[in-house]
C-alpha cells in the first residue's frame, strides 16, 4: 500500500478514458437516444392526431346517418301520404262506380218491371175481353166496347 508511480499512471489513464468517452462514446449514444425520443414523441403526436381525426370522422358519419334517417323518414311519410291519397281516391271512384252500377241496375229493373207490367196488362185486357165475351155469350162489339175495355185495362 505504498503511494507510487501508479498514482500518476492512474491520473493519466483517467483523463485518457474520460477523453475517449467524451469524444467517441457519449455524443453518438446521446444523439441517437434524443433522436429516438423525438421520433417516439412524433409518433405519439401522430397517433393522437389520428385518433382525433377518427373521432371527427365518426361524428361526421353519425351526423350523416342522422340526416339520412331523417330524409328516409320524410320519404316514407310522403309515400304513406300518397298511398292514403291513392286509396282514398280509389275508394271515392269505387263508390261512384258502385252508385252508377246500382243506378243502372235499378233503371233496368224498373224498365223490366214496366215492360212486364205492360205485357201483363195487355194480356189481362185480352183475357178479360175473352172472359167477358164468354160471359155475355155474345160478341161484343170490338169498337163499341173498346173504350170500356181500355178503361178496365188501364185500371189494372
Amino acid at each position: 500500500m505504498n503511494i507510487n508511480l501508479t498514482l500518476i499512471g492512474q491520473v493519466i489513464a483517467f483523463f485518457g478514458f474520460v477523453w475517449f468517452c467524451m469524444k467517441f462514446v457519449w455524443p453518438p449514444i446521446i444523439a441517437a437516444m434524443q433522436e429516438r425520443e423525438k421520433k417516439i414523441a412524433d409518433g405519439l403526436a401522430a397517433a393522437d392526431r389520428a385518433s382525433h381525426d377518427l373521432e371527427l370522422a365518426q361524428e361526421k358519419a353519425l351526423e350523416r346517418l342522422k340526416e339520412a334517417k331523417h330524409e328516409a323518414a320524410g320519404i316514407v311519410d310522403s309515400a304513406n301520404k300518397r298511398a292514403h291519397q291513392i286509396v282514398d281516391e280509389a275508394k271515392v271512384a269505387a263508390q261512384a262506380e258502385a252508385e252508377r252500377v246500382k243506378a243502372s241496375a235499378r233503371a233496368e229493373i224498373e224498365q223490366e218491371t214496366n215492360r212486364a207490367r205492360e205485357v201483363l196488362r195487355s194480356q189481362v185486357a185480352a183475357l178479360s175481353l175473352a172472359g167477358a165475351e164468354k160471359v155475355l155469350g155474345a160478341t161484343i162489339d170490338q169498337n163499341a166496347h173498346a173504350d170500356l175495355v181500355n178503361k178496365l185495362a188501364a185500371e189494372l
Binding site: V25, I29, A31, A32, M33, R36
Partner: peptide, 20 residues
C-alpha cells in the same frame, strides 16, 4: 477501462434512433 470503452464504443457505433 478498455473494457468499458470497448463496450460503450461498440454501442456508440451502432447507435441509431431505431428499435434498440
Amino acid at each position: 477501462g478498455i473494457v468499458f470503452s470497448w463496450m460503450f464504443y461498440r454501442v456508440a457505433k451502432k447507435a441509431s434512433s431505431g428499435v434498440p
